[in-house]
Computed example of a mutant assay.
Amino acid sequence: MNPTTFRIGGDLTVRRLGFGAMQLPTEPAADRATSLAVLRRAVDLGVTLIDTAHMYGGGANEELVAEALHPYPDGLLVTTKVGLARSADSGEWGLDGRPAVLRDQVDLALRRLRTDRIELLQLHRVDPEVPFADQLGTLADLRTEGKIGRVGLSEVTVAELARAREIVDIASVQNRYNLLDREHDAVLDACTAAGIAFLPWRPIAWGGAGEREEVAAVAAELGATATQVALAWLLDRSPVVLPIPGTSRITHLEENVAAAGLTLDADQRRRLTELAPGP
Rank of each mutant, 00 (worst) to 15 (best):
E62F: 00
E62I: 00
V65F: 02
A66E: 01
A66T: 10
E67D: 15
E67V: 08
E67F: 09
P71R: 03
Y72S: 03
Y72W: 06
G75T: 07
G75K: 02
L77P: 03
V78L: 03
V78D: 01
V78E: 02
V78I: 13
V78F: 00
T80D: 07
T80K: 00
K81D: 05
K81M: 00
V82L: 05
L84N: 11
L84Q: 08
L84P: 00
L84C: 07
L84W: 06
L84K: 10
R86T: 10
A88H: 05
A88T: 09
A88E: 14
S90P: 07
E92V: 15
W93G: 02
W93I: 12
G94T: 07
G94M: 02
G94S: 08
D96K: 05
D96I: 07
D96S: 04
G97E: 01
G97L: 04
G97K: 02
R98T: 12
R98H: 12
P99N: 07
A100I: 07
V101D: 11
V101E: 14
V101G: 11
V101M: 08
L102G: 12
L102D: 13
R103I: 11
D104P: 00
Q105A: 03
V106Q: 13
D107P: 09
D107Q: 15
D107R: 15
L108E: 11
A109L: 05
A109P: 04
L110M: 06
L113R: 08
R114M: 01
R114S: 06
R114G: 03
T115Y: 06
T115V: 13
T115S: 03
R117C: 12
I118Q: 04
